[in-house]
């Protein structure tokens, strides 16, 4: 009975997702049943839509920049958190991890208030990057915490004992051993930034990110099948990235002979 329920639940989880490819290949502009036959023209239209290309490039820029910055900040924070004791540590980590439990609209609004009303800055992709770094860093820290936690501190001491400086120890021992965590943190941060809508909605200027562009398309029903085609591609890319992240994590485990302790989430 439990098994039946779980299967039903999975069906519930997947039901809307499975519609994505259905309507992406449906030869009709109205997203409803009955279907109108098979077509790939929506995919073809994707290649010729300049606005969409611009939005995609914007999103890739934002996601790429934010994920790298978030992982750099995350590395410092996770390392400090796991390895060192210092005053007000809990408070500092609490503040840094806060975006994890803060409604995103609050982050968006507060940055909007400061950037526009108080500092008079122009909104641009960089304001979105600044906010995305803020929300991606806690995810990066969560993943990297686990990496640093499973790193035996005497490995670093052994390297120093064998004549390495601190910098060499980091390069030769620490970095290779936490690399799977770094890659996973990069991929997760990238995916979160790529999909984030509400903050970007508040903070983009004239250059929309992909979700902001999709949002505007949802107001123009004629273009919705194109969005479905795009969504199908994004879904495949997302799953691809996830598989990559998971494979990378397992390879890391196998390489260091560690035990599998569940997924990186």
């Amino acid at each position: 009975m439990l098994r039946a329920y779980v299967i039903l639940f999975l069906a519930f989880l997947y039901a809307p997702i499975l519609l994505l490819p259905v309507f992406a290949f449906n030869d009709g502009t109205v997203i409803a049943f009955p279907l109108d036959g098979f077509t790939t023209k929506w995919f073809a239209e994707l290649w010729t839509n300049d606005e969409l290309h611009a939005a995609l490039m914007n999103s890739l820029f934002v996601a790429g920049t934010s994920s790298v910055l978030a992982v750099l900040l995350g590395l410092a924070a996770a390392r400090a958190n796991i390895r060192y004791r210092f005053p007000a540590k809990a408070a500092a980590m609490g503040l840094i991890m806060l975006p994890l439990v803060l409604p995103e609209i609050i982050v968006g609004v507060s940055l909007l208030v400061v950037a526009v009303r108080m500092l008079g800055l122009d909104l641009s992709l960089w304001t979105v990057v600044a906010a995305h770094v803020l929300i991606c860093t806690p995810f990066a820290i969560a993943i990297l915490n686990a990496s640093f936690q499973s790193l035996d501190p005497s490995l670093e001491e052994a390297a120093i004992d064998l004549g390495c400086s601190r910098a060499e120890t980091f390069r030769l021992i620490t970095l290779p051993l936490v690399m799977p965590g770094i890659v996973a943190a990069l991929l997760i941060s990238f995916t979160i930034s790529l999909d984030e809508f509400i903050i970007a909605f508040f903070l983009t200027g004239s250059d929309p990110t992909l979700p902001v562009y999709i949002w505007s398309l949802l107001r123009f029903p004629r273009l919705i099948p194109v969005v479905m085609a795009l969504g199908t591609i994004l879904m495949i890319v997302s799953i691809g990235i996830l598989v990559l992240a998971e494979w990378n994590r397992r390879r890391g485990l196998a390489r260091t002979g560690a035990k599998d302790s569940g997924g990186f989430l």
Partner: peptide, 23 residues
């Protein structure tokens, strides 16, 4: 530890604590 935590902490102070206070 303090040197390491400084960059992420300053970032969170400037872009999270500060703005929340502004709100």
């Amino acid at each position: 530890g303090l040197t390491l935590i400084a960059p992420p902490l300053v970032y969170a102070l400037a872009l999270l604590a500060g703005p929340l206070l502004a709100v």
